[in-house]
């Protein structure tokens, strides 16, 4: 696991071990590909406003809540995810979404952890209020496959300590889609087509895996992944609405404190990635 000398300046190795750098690079690459090849309907203004608002909100939050240091990495990941997923005609909505994402992290907290994944919260609010939409069909096969490789590579390169929730979710979700297809007598091309969504990958690798919002123990995280999967599939095939995983996650997030209470584990620190076993580390947002 990453070295940490306990001072305010982590050493070089732990900086490079921080999976967030790798995440920022892969999200940026996907956004660039989307803009240039897939013609995503995202204007340069939307990107600028999303990134700018997220960073400003993070900075303001850092000052207001007297956190030790301003860290731009987490808000950048949230903002890049918003650029990839959120579509709207109005720039104020872009700013609002970005603000909500980051502000929610500071305000909606329970037991020193934020409850909702920032991107997830912002998307849920904007979609519910009808101010914007997501285009779950916007990804081509090439982008999807490339991004999948990048995401899997990211797990290996950064030795992400909490990949368990991602893997568990993907196994449950893909497994149940295949079971459904077999039950219906559908060809397997249908579940394969259903998982061919960049949004699903962003969800599995960047949203549900957010160590700040997942349960602390490994068992807790696997239970959580199963809950989210069931909720996602219900939205998709019971309510016939798109973006099932997104709604599944927002519905299940409030149960995390309960899972933590029943299945306790250690808190996550970005500079000291851990699986949640062993000694309890203290963290800051």
């Amino acid at each position: 696991m990453g070295q940490h000398d306990g001072k305010t300046h982590p050493d070089l190795l732990s900086i490079w071990r921080d999976p967030r750098l790798y995440q920022i690079v892969s999200l940026s690459a996907l956004l660039l590909y989307g803009l240039l090849w897939l013609h995503f309907e995202v204007s340069p203004w939307q990107i600028t406003i999303t990134l700018g608002t997220a960073l400003l909100t993070q900075y303001a939050g850092t000052r207001f809540f007297s956190l030790p240091a301003f860290d731009p990495k987490t808000p950048l990941i949230s903002a890049l995810s918003l650029c990839l997923l959120l579509r709207t005609d109005q720039l104020p909505v872009v700013a609002l979404a970005s603000f909500l994402a980051i502000a929610g992290k500071f305000v909606i907290r329970w037991n020193d952890k934020h409850v909702f994944n920032p991107t997830n919260l912002a998307l849920a609010v904007v979609l519910t209020s009808g101010l914007g939409w997501m285009s779950p069909g916007q990804w081509g096969q090439v982008a999807w496959f490339g991004f999948l490789i990048a995401c899997l590579g990211g797990l290996v390169v950064t030795r992400a300590a909490r990949a368990d929730v991602t893997v568990a979710f993907l196994v449950f979700y893909v497994g149940l889609l295949i079971v459904r297809a077999l039950w219906l007598g559908d060809p397997l091309t249908i579940p394969l087509h259903q998982i061919e969504s960049g949004a699903l990958l962003i969800f599995a690798f960047f949203m549900i895996s957010d160590p700040k919002t997942t349960p602390d123990s490994r068992t807790g995280r696997i239970v959580y992944a199963l809950l989210v999967t069931m909720a996602a599939l219900y939205v998709q095939f019971g309510l016939f609405r798109p973006n099932g995983p997104l709604w599944g996650l927002i519905a299940c997030a409030p149960f995390v404190p309960l899972i933590d209470y029943v299945l306790p584990g250690s808190r996550y620190d970005w500079s000291k990635p851990s699986t949640g076993r062993g000694c309890v580390a203290h963290s800051h947002t």
Binding site: D89, G132, W133, P136, I190, H193
Partner: peptide, 14 residues
Amino acid sequence: FPEDLIFQETTDRS
């Protein structure tokens, strides 16, 4: 096109 076409209505009026 292995799957049926599924749609959503967006708020895009451009």
